[in-house]
Amino acid sequence: MTAQSLVVATAPLDLAGSGQPLKDRAFRWMLFAALTVGVVTLAVLIAYVTIKGWPRLNSTLWTNMPSIRRPERAGAQSAITGTLWVISFTAIFALPTGILAALYLEEFARPNSRFQRLVEINIQNLAAVPSIVYGILGLAVFARALALGQSVITAALTLSLLILPIIIISTREALRAVPRNIRDGSLALGATEWQTASRQTLPAAIPGIATGVILSLSRAVGEAAPLLLLGAVTFITFNPTGPLSGYTTLPIQIFNWTKDSREEFQILASATIVLLLVLLLVMNFVAIWIRNRTQKRW
């Protein structure tokens, strides 16, 4: 008997069923529509500012300084360099602090102790504090009490506090993703807890940490509210010369230009928004790239 005759011998089954019910399809469309809201918003936003800012999307945007009297020749150079200065110092302050704090909580603190739970809740609350509140803190502590005034360092310290909880939370997640048996393997060889943390756990978690750090820094790049409180609204036509120098940043510059009623400044603001968006998207892509490149190592 061949296999074919066996197949023929079997009575055909009715597998047609009742098809996809209407409710199922409607639900699928609802989900898809919800998804579209976000994507379409971003697309419209980018299209709008690109079209509006197009006339000024050329090299004068980053070669020229802002100007009040001659909008047609004004650029955003001082805001670009200011952003780079502020974000570099933010990284210098927030990275080591955040990573070391996370390392302590994850690797050294007694797990599930009352202390650890208390700190955990506090960090989560801190991450939910509105950024304007950090601005008030920065103004009172860094600008006034420590007399750092309206400087790059004041802005960087304030933004560091703002992103610190995000760095701690994402670093802890990255550390937690490192399998327990890597630590066991290291400790079983006679390595100390510090050697295990610094030579195994932390290096193994770096891709995850880098992703979290880049995303938090891109949040800091886009912040305007705390810097407005810190007095960054003043008109700056020079690049920062040091940590104590005055500064402006891209979001602040955009804010200043959009306040001006002249059409040229509106166009200039749109062009600068495109620049800021490109910077943020590049940072996010780098974060995603790092994450994808290093996925599933164990």
């Binding site: 399998p179 048996n181 890597i182 066991d184 393997g185 290291s186 400790l187 079983a188 060889l189 006679g190 390595a191 100390t192 195994q200 290096p203 193994a204 190592r297 164990w298």
Partner: peptide, 19 residues
């Protein structure tokens, strides 16, 4: 314990090579 673990090594159930 560090000195103990140096003299008494351990191999685990799942091969836990380092990355």
């Amino acid at each position: 314990p560090i000195e103990v673990r140096r003299r008494i090594g351990m191999v685990f159930q799942k091969p836990n090579v380092f990355p």
